[in-house]
């Protein structure tokens, strides 16, 4: 299983906090973005323009996912 978590304003816009999916459904970050787009009905571009963190480390669109991974999608943030 792969855990996908969504943060930032995209989470509020889509109402989707994240997904638990099987590895056969998402082999890489790109696939995870497509899956999120399908689930939420929004453009895949919005998800591809997020910052990706895999198990707490920076990831890329082409990064492969492995069983047990946690993929986090973040938007840029500022303020304080």
């Amino acid at each position: 299983m792969v855990t996908i978590k969504l943060f930032g304003s995209l989470r509020l816009k889509t109402g989707c906090k994240g997904l638990e999916v099987s590895l056969s459904d998402v082999r890489d970050v790109k696939g995870a973005c497509q899956l999120l787009a399908d689930e939420t009905g929004r453009s895949v571009k919005e998800f591809r323009n997020c910052v990706f963190m895999i198990n707490g480390k920076p990831g890329r669109l082409s990064s492969a996912l492995r069983d047990g991974d946690e993929l986090v999608l973040l938007a840029a943030a500022g303020g304080g």
Binding site: G8, L12, A77, G78, G79, G80
Partner: peptide, 12 residues
């Protein structure tokens, strides 16, 4: 980001 989440949006 700031209107939707405020500065609190930075936590994650």
């Amino acid at each position: 980001q700031l209107p939707r989440l405020g500065t609190a949006g930075l936590v994650s």
